[in-house]
Structures are given as structure tokens and as C-alpha cells.
Design a protein around this nucleic acid. Structure first.
Lengths: 302, 302
DNA sequence: CGGTGTCCATATAATTATGTATAGCTATGC
DNA sequence: GCATAGCTATACATAATTATATGGACACCG
């Protein structure tokens, strides 16, 4: 180990890995293709291993390169987190805050909450990662996360919001054509919208309502947004948050008395961010907004 | 945010933070003081905040700089981990593996195990971090850790080794002068070696043997090695691993029947490292070596 | 089959970053 | 009170890195 390679080489390495070519990586980083090529050469020289197999239509990563990718990704997220923290003034609510949430929450529930937040703090920029893959708060991939399962890590500031009620819903058009089931067992004859793969709360449902195992589904998707869209399109009967359909009078909550799954909700952020004003106010706004949202879900049922 | 700052600036920033001066950082990195100074200038420019207060005898970090330090430390450990992984050949046992262990384990127990390991694999370099502050396996601060508490994280490959027995020990010279206690209550009149602060197994001891609360101590230290040295020097009666005193016939295990605390022991590494040969063999060697060590502790009692 | 767009590799020129040398400041010790 | 040793800031020459320009390889398509 002669001398440590420039950390910029890691950035070039990761960008090539992501884009699959020197040229594309160069465009991404605002550099030129020969420069990126030299970086990769230098890194290969430094570690004594071939990282890419070059061809005239791109670079193919070797196994070694793939082994290194997670480290390089961590470097990138950490550098981004550092920059976020540094660029926000310490005494005012400014800068960027990165929120992680599930697709459904990020698209259906959070936008109005974030709108209010930004109304109050115009200097605050919000980066929303709406994805069902968990981002790690410990590695600072996100500053704040909305989670549907209790975060286990120490060093996290966690606030439990409550339970979002899930229930069966369908479009009025569908019910007019197929009738409205009055009991769980009547579901059997209906066009049901189901999930592709097992998630935590699907397993919970199967346990609480064993009937679910015997139902047949007309439409299945692993994407919760697609599931919701199917309900809204009148494809059939599906499960979603009761609060999501309330604004639309054409969507009907059915079997409200017979069936409900509570979906626990938490907001979490890293302990050390609680002194950063931009995180503090965002955390508080999410807590307040989600409490309101849950209240609205419950009111809808009455 | 015009263009992202060079990642090398973060390295310079961290080094200045650690050493407190541009000159010292420059020596550390093999660069020169003006270069480091320019890096800091550029980083301050990029983030729009003052990071250090310059004076003629060094640089004093601002609060902003201190906020950023943990991120920079993460960058450094990640870069080091990347380099460790990259520099080890994938098909052979070569390269550097970093082990984290407590001071006592790292100094008293592990060296012979590591010696055997390196006998078998001459190409393997071992970096031992013997410290009682936990290093985080998730952040790759270490590749493998020997822990006296069960690691809780997912994504860790954890192997429980068993219990290392702790007991009261004293030097023969001490016992000749002060007598050998035959019961727990006889400890009251003795010169005892105690701990400064509460650790997990001290709390456990107080629960199992409430007597401990009433004892008075002739010598206290929070450093386990110093505790052990005190026993070896004949200062009095103290607690240590039974296996540590066996090679020395002058050290006597007392109250063996009346008192024993089991110290649970685990070896852990990140799941993703199990395919890296250098980590795999080190993990296995630690497990095997520690199992042997525990066996030797137990035999010593008979 | 030739045109077009993509890619990488290489040589050369322009730019940038770096090292050297030096001056100025502060603390410490004799 | 002066000498020494530590530090930072600046000016300038140099070395290193970068961009530019070009050539060759491969795939796609009419």
C-alpha cells in the first residue's frame, strides 16, 4: 500500500459502476471520458485488481468491482449527508431534508403535509424518497423516515403515531354491478384485488382472517400504488387505507364492521439530528400531519 | 450547489479536525500545508460556512465542523473498508482483516489465536483494535468483532461461543500474608480490587451476589487490564477470567465453588463478508480458538 | 453495404493544483 | 528581551491533472 488513492477515484468508480460506461459517468460528473478512464486505471493500479472489463460499448464490472459497490454507495450517501448538514445554516430552518417513506405514504399522504411545512419554512427544501425498500437511517441515507414497522435501532429518535386503519374498498360502479358484500364470506364470489408477495401485514391479515387464504383474486400486484389504482378504477374489491378514499365519494368502504387491520406508523430520525432545525421542524410536522391524517381516517368510519 | 466538492476535501477536512493544524494534517497525508489550507478554503466556500477559526498556532473547529465530523469519520472508515476488500484477492486468503475486541480479550486471549491463524495463512495481515469502545460492524469499522454481549443487528453473522467463567483470584504472596477466604462473607476483611464504573456484568454480579455492595475496595480502576495487573502484582483479591491466571502457578483461583460469573462470548461479522476468504478463515479461527480457550478455563477449575 | 451513433484509447495542449520559499504571527524558554 | 519553534498566509515556479482532438472498434439501421 504505497499511498492511499484519491477519494475522488471512488466517486468516479461508483459512477462508472452505475452507468456502465466511462462516457456516461463523465457526463454525470461534469468531467470528460479520458479523465474518468484515468481514474479507473489509477484505482485498479492502487488496489492491484482489475475492476472492469473494457469493451467498445461499455465497461463490464468484474466480481471485485461488484464486491466494492456497497462501500462506494455508502461513501456517496455519507458525502451527500455531510453536504446536506453543512449547507443548512445551524440557527435557521434552511437547507435540504431527506425523507424516506413507502410509495403509498409518499405519494398519497405526505404531499399535503410537506406543502404545509414548506409554506411555514420557505427556505426548506425537501427530498422525498418514496420507495418500499428501506433506507437506512443509521447510514444517513435519509434524515427522517416514516415507517410502518417499529424501528429497532438504538440511537434513533422514534415517535409512534398510531394505527392507520386498513379496510376493504371498492368503486361505486363496481358495487352497482356486482352488489355489496355484507359479510366476510360473501367476498368469495367477488372480483378481489390481491398482493403478489408476502409483506408483514399480509401475514398479519392471514392470521386474523384465515378466510383470506381461500379467496381467489382477479388482479394481483406487488405494487401498492397499482393496487390502489385498481380499486379506484373499479376493477374490484381491495384493501387500502380508509383515509385514502374519503375525498372521493365514488369509493366505498365496505365490511367496515367486520374487517379492519391496524397499520402501525412511526416517524424516526437519528438522535444526533434533533439539534438540526431543519430536521427538527420536519420531524414535528410529520408527526403532527400524520396524527391529523389518522384522525381523519377514523372520522371517515363514523 | 454549483458542483459537488472533491471528496479529497473531506479527507483533508477530517485530518485537520483530528490534528488541529494544517501543518500536522499535511504531514499525515503526505501533502503540504498550503495545499491543505486551500482544501479547507474550498470546502468552506462550497458549503458556505466557516469550518475553522484560524489562529497562528492552529485551527479551532467551529460548531459546524464538529457537526460534520461523524460523517467524515464514516467516510474514512468506509474508504478503509473498501480498500481492505479490494486489496485482498478473492480466491486466496490474503489481505488485511480488522478485528475488534475488548482490551482484555485483545491483549490476553487473542494473540496466540492470531499467531496460529497467521502460521496457517502467511499472506494474511491482521489489524487488531483492542478497545472497550464498541466499533460498529454495520459501518465496517471492523470486519469481525469479539463481543461480550449478544450483537442485536440483523445482517450479522453471529456465533455464540459460550461462557467464559469469571472468578476471584489473588497472588500467592497476598494469600500467604492475609490468609485465603473460604466463604464469601470472609471477603469483607480483605483488600479487594474493584471497578470504577458500572458495566453490564458488574450489574449482574450485584444482582447475583448482593454482598458485593457492602464490600470496601482497596484499589479501584475502570481499566480491566489494570485490574488484572493489580491481581498479578498481589495488591489483593479481584475478579478476572479463570483462564487468564492458569499459566501462572503463583495466581490462585479462590472461592471457586461459591462464586462464578459466566461471561457470554460471541463472534460476529457482517453477513456480506462471509464470502471473503480472509474474513471467513479469521472468523472460523476465532471461533475455534475461543472454544478452546473456554475449554481450558473449565479444565483449570477441576 | 455504407451511414450514424456509441463507445474506448491515445497524444497533445491548456488548465489546474501542488510544492517551494518566504514573511508574519504567537507562545515558550533561557 | 531575545532566540527558538510552532503555526498560517502569500507569491511564484513547477508538476500534475484535465480537456481537446483524433483514430479505431463495434452495433444498429435503412
Amino acid at each position: 500500500m504505497d499511498t492511499e488513492p484519491s477519494w475522488d477515484f471512488y466517486r468516479s468508480f461508483l459512477t462508472v459502476l452505475r452507468h456502465g460506461s466511462l462516457s456516461a459517468a463523465a457526463r454525470e460528473l461534469g468531467l470528460t471520458q479520458p479523465t474518468i478512464g484515468r481514474h479507473i486505471d489509477a484505482l485498479e493500479e492502487a488496489v492491484g485488481a482489475e475492476l472492469f472489463i473494457r469493451s467498445s460499448n461499455g465497461l463490464l464490472p468484474t466480481d471485485v468491482a461488484l464486491d466494492l459497490q456497497p462501500y462506494a454507495e455508502t461513501l456517496a450517501t455519507t458525502a451527500a449527508a455531510l453536504l446536506r448538514t453543512a449547507s443548512s445554516r445551524r440557527d435557521t430552518v434552511e437547507g435540504t431534508v431527506r425523507i424516506s417513506a413507502s410509495e403509498v405514504m409518499g405519494i398519497e399522504v405526505l404531499p399535503p403535509i410537506i406543502a404545509d411545512l414548506q409554506e411555514a419554512y420557505p427556505g426548506l427544501q425537501v427530498e422525498l424518497s418514496a420507495s418500499d425498500t428501506l433506507e437506512d437511517l443509521m447510514n444517513r441515507e435519509a434524515d427522517i423516515a416514516v415507517r410502518m414497522a417499529e424501528p429497532q435501532q438504538d440511537a434513533l429518535l422514534v415517535r409512534r403515531i398510531g394505527d392507520i386503519p386498513l379496510g376493504f374498498h371498492a368503486h361505486r360502479h363496481y358495487l352497482e354491478r356486482h352488489g355489496t358484500p355484507q359479510t366476510m364470506s360473501e367476498l368469495a364470489g367477488h372480483r378481489l384485488i390481491g398482493f403478489d408477495r408476502q409483506t408483514a401485514y399480509i401475514r398479519m391479515m392471514r392470521k386474523l382472517y384465515p378466510l383470506a387464504d381461500e379467496l381467489t383474486y382477479a388482479f394481483r400486484t406487488s405494487n401498492h400504488l397499482a393496487h390502489l389504482a385498481a380499486i379506484r378504477a373499479g376493477i374490484g374489491i381491495g384493501i387500502c387505507q380508509t383515509g385514502l378514499v374519503r375525498p372521493n365519494p365514488d369509493l366505498v368502504h365496505i365490511l367496515a364492521e367486520e374487517f379492519e387491520i391496524p397499520l402501525g406508523t412511526w416517524v424516526a430520525m437519528h438522535e444526533s439530528l434533533k439539534t438540526a432545525p431543519r430536521c427538527r421542524v420536519t420531524f414535528d410536522a410529520l408527526v403532527k400531519g400524520l396524527l391529523n391524517y389518522i384522525r381523519s381516517c377514523t372520522e371517515a368510519r363514523v
